[in-house]
Simulated assay, not measured.
Amino acid sequence: MKKYRYKLKISYDGLNYQGWQKQPNKKTIQGELEKNLFKICGNSNISVEGSGRTDTGVHAKGQIAHFDSVDKLDNQSIKQSLNCLLCDDIRICTVNNVSLNFHSRFSAKSKEYRYFICNAKTLSPHIRNYRYHETRELNIKEMQQAANLLIGNHDFASFTVNPGYIINNSVREIFTFDINKIDSTIIIKVCGNGFLYKMVRSFTGFLIDVGLGRFDVNYTNDLLMKMKRNKDIKTAPAKGLFLWRVNY
C-alpha cells in the first residue's frame, strides 16, 4: 500500500505540557498532535515521530516531526486544520511532502538549543516563564572560555542525568557553543550532533556557576575526564530552554 510522508515544523510553549513524548493520562505535544491528526484523517494509527524529546516545560521554536498517511493530503489544509484544532500554545509553522527515506530523528545532522537568562535585578513578568532569573552579575568571558572547552567530540557522562533507561553511548559532538549578552539577556547557543538527557540544562547550570566564580574555567576539563556526574553539576530550570532548530 502506498504511503505519503509529511514533515512538520512545530513551535510550542512547553509550560502546560509534560514534555514531547506521549504518555498515558498526561498532556504532551506528541499526544496532542496525534489526537488532532486522527480528527482530520480519521486514522487512529497515525504516529507522529519527532526529531527528539523535549522535557516538561521546555519550549520549541523549530521542532521537526513527520507522520505517514495512506491518503494524499493537501499541505496547506493540514496546517490550517491542525492550527484550528490545537491549543494556541502549539503552532504548525510549515508542512512539506518528503521522501519515505526521510526521518525526523535519524536524518538530522545537528540540533541547536538556546537557553535564555535574565541577568538583572528585576525580571519582567511577561517573560517570567521563558527566562532563568539570575540577579548576580555573570562573567560572560569566563563562561565563554568554559563553553569553548566543551566544543568537540567528548564523553558527556558528567553532563547528563539518569533518564531511567540504559544509555549505551554518552559520546556526542558539539559543533558550536556561543554565549552573548544583549542588554540584560544572556543567550546560550549550543549546536551539536545530539544531546543526552538534560545535557543542555546541565551545561547551563555549570556555566552559570563558572560565571559566578564558583568554578574555575579549567574545571571543565576535569569534569569531562571524570565521565561521571557529581553534585557540582546543577540542572538549570526547563523554562529558559528552547529547541531552536534542527538541521538536515
Rank of each mutant, 00 (worst) to 15 (best):
K3P: 14
S11V: 10
G14Y: 06
W20Y: 02
I29T: 07
G31C: 07
E32G: 06
K35V: 04
N36V: 04
K39F: 14
K39L: 13
C41A: 04
N45V: 09
I46N: 07
I46C: 06
E49P: 10
G52F: 06
G62E: 08
A65M: 08
D68L: 10
V70C: 15
N75V: 15
K79Q: 07
Q80A: 12
L86A: 12
C87N: 15
R91E: 14
I92P: 09
N96P: 10
N96M: 12
N97R: 09
N97C: 01
V98Y: 11
N101E: 08
F102V: 04
R105K: 09
S107F: 10
S107E: 02
E112L: 10
R128V: 10
Y130F: 13
Y132I: 15
R136P: 09
L149Q: 09
L149W: 01
L150H: 05
F156V: 08
F159Q: 00
V161Q: 10
N162I: 10
G164P: 06
N168F: 13
N168K: 15
N169L: 12
N169W: 07
I186A: 09
K189A: 05
F195K: 04
K198C: 12
V200C: 05
T204Y: 04
F206A: 00
F206W: 13
I208S: 02
L223Q: 00
L223C: 00
K226W: 04
T235C: 14
L241C: 03
F242I: 03
L243T: 08
